[in-house]
Amino acid sequence: MKVVTIIGARPQIIKAAAISREIANNYVDRIKEIIVHTGQHYDSNMSEVFFTELNIPRPDYNLNVGSGSHGVQTARMIEGIEEIVLKEQPDYVLLYGDTNSTLAGATAASKLNIPIVHIEAGLRSFNRRMPEEINRIVCDHLSTFLFSPTRTGYDNLVREGFSEENEKTFTPDNPGIFHCGDIMYDNSLHFAQMASSRSTILEDHNLVSDAFVLATIHRDHNTDHEESLTAIFKALMEIAKERKVVLPLHPRTKNKLQELADEDFCKKVIEHEGLLLIPPVSFLDMIALEKNAKMVITDSGGVQKEAYFFNKPCVILRPETEWIEILETGMAKLVSANYDKILETYNTFAADKKVKFPSIFGKGRAAEFICAKLFSN
């Protein structure tokens, strides 16, 4: 069996590690994986470092697409992916999540009648103004195999017309839907021990476990609007008066802060004693920060989950989330870019001594389940 895996954004590179690891351990003579990197994330700290640090197989192809508008970027990817799929003639094209790389891979593969495998299927924010929502819906409805990390995601697929009764052999007209657990939970379990022994991020920045807050900001609805971006940074600076806030600064956020905010405000952010701005960190360093933070404040879907994996309350800088389950546990709360809500939720979580994190993301064996289903079809 030959599988072409499409990756492009930093989280997809990490997610792909779990499937590549399962193939290497248990299917080395039965499944051949061809990895295509679209180049959607082109900064070395946002992409290249992960292949080295996590021992992920290096891409067989790199499209080097880089930045651009949604249309331009996606079109370039479709062109490059189509050429590779025609050359390789895979049995499946495997896609992750909801990025432009996902949409491009789904479009190219479906036009060439190559069955699509979508990992993280069924997730919905129910906000079609988000490009990611469009990408995930389109990919799901073009896919042959749909693997959902949560029961909620699986139920979303059923509500959209996917049948639970379909049986193999699965095809685009007879797709199979499965609740398999979260593939990032596989990776978090696998890499957590490695992070403990190899990451020096805490020592490098004199950070004490449970004495700092980890924050990440990158989504356009926060970064591209001065009012939102300013409100978030004002809240972080207020929190930083009593507890250090560590913010690995996404290139987009750094650029937009300089473009949108006035010079005096930027200076206050940069010079604030309790706000530690650092460059984007490696995956192992990120795990170390998540494991040792008191709390996480983020607009990232992946970081929301990882916070939950490591039993950390999460303040979500979005009006909605695909990960409804973590909201239902009470260990995460939506605050959007509202200054008052950010501080209120931070204070509530900081004072709560009875946090509970029930198991909702499986048992860390999603990659095993996925490969077994593909090989038995």
Rank of each mutant, 00 (worst) to 15 (best):
K2W: 01
V4S: 06
A9I: 03
P11E: 06
Q12T: 13
I14A: 08
I14F: 09
A16F: 06
A18T: 05
I19L: 14
E22W: 06
V28L: 09
D29M: 02
D29E: 08
R30Q: 04
I31G: 02
E33G: 03
I34V: 13
I34E: 00
I35C: 08
V36W: 08
H37R: 01
G39N: 01
Q40A: 07
H41K: 07
Y42Q: 12
D43S: 10
D43Y: 10
L54E: 11
N55V: 13
I56L: 15
P57V: 02
P57L: 06
R58C: 08
Y61L: 08
Y61C: 13
N64P: 09
V65C: 01
V65Y: 00
H70S: 12
V72W: 14
T74N: 06
T74I: 07
M77W: 05
I78T: 09
I84P: 05
P90M: 09
P90W: 03
N100G: 10
G105M: 03
P115E: 05
I116T: 05
I119D: 00
E120R: 00
M130S: 01
E132P: 12
E132F: 12
E133L: 00
N135I: 14
I137A: 05
D140H: 00
L142C: 02
L142V: 03
F145I: 02
L157W: 03
G161F: 00
P172I: 04
N174C: 02
F178Y: 12
H179E: 13
C180W: 06
D182N: 12
D182P: 04
D186L: 08
H190G: 04
A192R: 07
A192N: 13
Q193L: 12
Q193T: 05
M194L: 10
T200E: 13
T200F: 09
E203C: 08
L207E: 12
S209E: 14
F212H: 09
L214A: 10
T216V: 01
D220N: 08
H221F: 15
T223V: 08
E227P: 09
L229Y: 02
A231Q: 12
A231C: 09
F233I: 12
A235V: 04
A235W: 09
M237K: 04
A240F: 03
R243D: 06
R243P: 00
V246L: 05
H250K: 13
L257V: 07
Q258F: 14
E259P: 05
E273L: 10
G274R: 12
L275P: 02
I278A: 06
P279D: 08
S282W: 13
A288D: 13
E290D: 12
E290N: 10
G302T: 07
Q304M: 11
Q304Y: 04
A307Q: 04
Y308F: 15
F310H: 15
N311R: 15
L317Y: 08
L317N: 10
E320Y: 13
I326A: 00
A337W: 10
N338K: 11
N338F: 11
D340I: 06
Y346V: 10
Y346P: 06
F349E: 10
A350P: 11
P358E: 11
S359E: 15
I360N: 11
G362R: 13
G364W: 15
R365V: 14
A366W: 00
E368W: 04
